[in-house]
């Protein structure tokens, strides 16, 4: 306990004595954390929006009008089989009447339907894939059932679906890539700043070694100093992010109400983000100085 107090006092003393360096390290942490803190929720938001679009993808299996009840039952058994092996999440049967109703709702001028002889709309299964990427498998598995209408067949959104999936993949991988690059860049930046600050004091560390300080006795104040700079830097960044959220993002959401609320895409909550950022600031600060100082402890 007395030791902890001593180490903290030592850390604060050295921050005071090396104010310029401490400010440099803190600012570096603040900038890195701010960039990450802005990027991570944006990425998660886009990711969530894309996921929602992916959720809308479904597969339709159109049934030919002449298909018998047995043939339809056979098809349904095939879908159930796909459901039990996890390819299909859920499915729905739409009979001819329902198909007509759906079409009637969808058309701007339903009177056009009155002109039609009878009901041309086929029965169908609307199948929700467990993952959008699996829709192709579902099509392949159901295509050759006798109940399937040869001309309409089994389809998903086709071109749209594959484009959407491509975009989703692109966003996911570039986003992850960017986050990793950003993380590495911030780590290097912070480590470098801390290295400079420790390097400026290598003589001090040497002297401490020469008069008999153990490695951890010398290291603790540096580690605590790193934690303090990391915490303050991250807190500054979080404060700035908060200001940006209140001042810019929230207003923008209100102004663009329709486009965003229709898609209720979500992102990480601010307090969770703040917690993660501040914790990582402290950890990076501690590790950065704790590891850098090792080089000078070899005397």
């Amino acid at each position: 306990m007395r030791k902890a107090r001593f180490f903290i006092a030592e850390a604060l003393r050295s921050i005071r004595a090396n104010m310029a360096v401490a400010i440099a390290a803190t600012t570096t942490v603040a900038i890195a954390v701010f960039v990450l803190g802005a990027f991570i929720p944006s990425f998660l938001f886009v990711q969530s929006a894309v996921d929602q679009q992916k959720d809308r993808i479904d597969v339709r299996a159109y049934i030919s009008d002449p298909a018998t009840v047995d043939q339809v039952a056979e098809l349904e058994a095939g879908i159930v089989a796909l459901q039990s092996d996890g390819t299909v999440e859920s499915f729905d049967f739409v009979d001819k009447q329902e198909a007509l109703e759906i079409m009637r709702e969808r058309l701007q001028d339903p009177t056009i339907l009155e002109e039609l002889p009878g009901n041309p709309f086929p029965r169908s299964y609307i199948i929700k894939p467990a993952q959008a990427e699996r829709s192709g498998d579902i099509i392949a598995a159901l295509r050759d059932f006798p109940a399937i209408d040869p001309s309409a067949g089994v389809v998903d959104g086709g071109e749209t679906t594959s484009r959407l999936l491509d975009v989703a993949r692109f966003i996911q991988w570039t986003g992850l890539g960017l986050i990793v690059i950003l993380l590495i860049a911030s780590l290097l930046l912070i480590a470098n700043t801390i290295r400079l600050s420790v390097f400026a004091r290598r003589r001090e560390v040497e002297i401490m070694r020469l008069v008999g300080g153990t490695n951890w006795f010398i290291r603790w104040p540096f580690v605590i100093e790193g934690i303090v700079c990391g915490l303050i830097g991250a807190a500054l960044a979080v404060g700035l992010l908060w200001a940006v959220k209140i001042g810019v993002v929230d207003n923008w959401i209100v102004e663009n109400d329709d486009s965003l609320t229709r898609d209720t895409a979500t992102t990480i909550g601010f307090s969770a983000l703040a917690g993660i950022l501040i914790a990582s600031g402290a950890i990076v600060g501690a590790l950065g100085s704790g590891i850098t100082i090792r080089r000078f402890l070899k005397v």
Partner: peptide, 16 residues
């Protein structure tokens, strides 16, 4: 090192 007193030409005092 704690049990040996050491004195150096350049004093090796902690500057701060």
């Amino acid at each position: 090192r704690r049990s040996i007193g050491t004195i150096f030409q350049d004093y090796k005092l902690l500057p701060g």
